[in-house]
Computed example of a mutant assay.
Amino acid sequence: MAEPALIELDRVGLRYGAHTALREVSLAVARGERIALVGANGSGKSSLLRVLHGLLAPSAGRRAQRDAGLRIAMLFQRPFLLRLSVRANLRLGLWLHGVHGAAAAARCAEALQRVGLQAEARRPARALSGGQQQRLALARAWALRPDVLLLDEPTASLDPTAKREVEALLAEFAKQGLTLIVASHNLGQVKRLASRVIYLEHGRVLADVPAARFFDGHAGLPREAQLFVRGELPW
């Protein structure tokens, strides 16, 4: 890695009571990477995202980040939107992060333009379609100028058109240098968006490889990962 990792995990474990969600996970995230987390339900993808963000502290091991000012945003599968207008949802997020006045207005307008929701600015956010709500959630995260954007199944409940719109936004953000870490069951989406794939099973990282290697021939991958990418393991 040419420069220090933005985020690094060293033998991280995570427990919820008697349940172990992550086991001995070690990885480093470099600036500008496009990482996909894949694996069956319960493999630890969402837990790993939360530890990478800092929402959950490891039960064992160590999480470190390059500097305390690293800006990290997270987009959940079902974004939480307040009973306010589209614009107000954006402005509130900025206000909570100390961006006020003219600066907030400018960022809000730019973010709405970026995701194609300028015409919906006055509408109640919860009246938007599922795809529009996800685009609003992306705008809210993008407006915070994050260094790293974490996404948990960002298109799982969307129709094909909305999925394409969200994927296009993510691809555009990646081109701007934003570091993306996406948990996804959609292997087609992973193939289109990711440069690196991390395969988890029962809380362990069994493969951490370039996306091309994960999908093309599977040489050297653990048998579980080979079966998974061929669709022969359950989700």
Rank of each mutant, 00 (worst) to 15 (best):
C108A: 15
C108E: 15
A109S: 13
E110L: 10
A111M: 06
L112M: 11
Q113M: 09
V115W: 08
L117S: 07
L117V: 03
Q118K: 03
E120F: 02
E120W: 05
A121C: 12
R123V: 07
P124F: 06
A127S: 15
L128H: 01
S129C: 02
S129T: 08
G130R: 00
G130K: 00
Q132K: 07
Q132S: 11
Q132R: 07
Q133N: 10
Q133D: 11
Q134N: 10
Q134K: 11
R135D: 00
L136C: 10
A137K: 06
A137Q: 09
A137Y: 05
L138P: 08
L138I: 05
L138Y: 02
A139W: 09
R140W: 01
A141D: 01
W142S: 00
A143D: 11
A143W: 12
A143K: 09
P146Y: 02
P146S: 04
D147E: 14
L149C: 12
L150D: 05
L151P: 03
D152N: 03
P154F: 03
P154E: 09
P154Q: 07
P154L: 04
T155F: 03
T155S: 10
A156P: 08
D159G: 12
D159R: 04
P160C: 10
P160L: 04
A162S: 15
A162L: 07
K163E: 14
K163S: 14
R164L: 14
R164T: 12
R164F: 04
R164W: 05
E165K: 00
V166T: 06
V166F: 00
E167I: 08
A168I: 00
A168H: 08
L169G: 00
L169T: 01
L169M: 07
A171M: 13
A171V: 04
E172K: 00
E172T: 10
E172R: 11
A174H: 07
K175W: 02
Q176T: 14
L178Q: 14
L178N: 13
T179M: 08
L180N: 06
I181A: 04
I181W: 02
V182C: 15
V182M: 15
A183I: 02
S184Y: 03
S184I: 07
N186P: 01
L187Y: 04
G188F: 11
V190T: 14
V190D: 13
L193A: 09
L193P: 05
L193F: 06
L193K: 02
A194W: 03
R196C: 06
Y199L: 14
E201Q: 13
G203E: 12
G203W: 09
R204S: 15
V205D: 07
L206P: 06
L206C: 10
D208A: 09
D208L: 05
D208V: 04
D208I: 03
V209G: 10
P210F: 00
P210A: 07
